[in-house]
Design a protein around this nucleic acid. Structure first.
Lengths: 134, 134
DNA sequence: ACTATTGTATTAACTACTTAGTACAATAAT
DNA sequence: ATTATTGTACTAAGTAGTTAATACAATAGT
């Protein structure tokens, strides 16, 4: 397992899984605006993948404007706060749309979806109340 | 596009996407208990994939006990209603768990998740009221 | 100037998935 | 008996992702 708690599944190319993981870290602010990333080699080593694979993931994010690379200084998260805000919304919408589609595929009605999510959230709330205190 | 409205994405092997699609059709009851499936060749043709790919998808489902194949008569959905019921629950749980995990990855708090789902469901409700009437 | 580190590019080998094409055994229908 | 249809198995070729190994250009730090 990675130090990131990211478990790769074999269904999807690792570079896409990496890209999605980092994309969401950007969306959540966990990777802050303007922040410098570790080097390709360091990241690859940390995620335990080949540098080429990591490079491909980063290139993907770069083509989306989320990262910017400076020749020898390293890679940085974009400082375009609007882009990041848009990303947050976009990711949330996509996740929810996929979720609703999947639930309807298994024949789950709308109201039942709400009920299930509600109890799942409550369950998670309880399950977390032990470790968390701030 | 298929006659099933199933769009393959390149991230995941097609045979797994097929298996998941059929699995959910079974879970939803859209493919009924004991019902006979079309032949491998016909299904492959309908889904517009190679017969080998379809065969692999069906073999996967067979190994899960959801299908049973009779040498020359064809393939049938299991008649084990308990298995199907368990499948429904299992699929729903998996979908919800994945959903919550994804939403938390992008930094969305629990209560906000509920709100978003609620409005998404309401939006879907409205968006559907035009075409549907029965 | 030199060194280390950065991103980047290239090549080769390996694996998994997909497709095409073919073939065989079993049996229902004729 | 013959025919058509069923599931099943196999080989070969093509494609894409992963890894390994190497190399180069640019520049910050020394």
């Amino acid at each position: 397992m990675n130090p990131f708690g990211l478990q790769f599944h074999s269904n999807s190319p690792i570079y896409l899984q990496l890209a999605e993981h980092i994309r969401r870290a950007i969306a959540s602010g966990q990777l802050a605006c303007g922040q410098r990333l570790d080097s390709v080699r360091d990241l690859a080593s940390a995620y335990q993948v080949n540098p080429n694979t990591m490079q491909r993931a980063l290139s993907t994010l770069e083509s989306e404007g989320l990262l910017r690379s400076e020749r020898t200084a390293g890679r940085f998260i974009t400082e375009d706060t609007e882009l990041i805000a848009a990303l947050q919304v976009c990711e949330a919408d996509a996740i929810i749309a996929q979720f609703l589609e999947q639930m309807q595929q298994i024949g789950c009605e709308r109201q039942r979806i709400l009920t299930l999510v509600q109890s799942a959230v409550e369950a998670a709330e309880k399950g977390e109340s032990h470790g968390t205190q701030q």
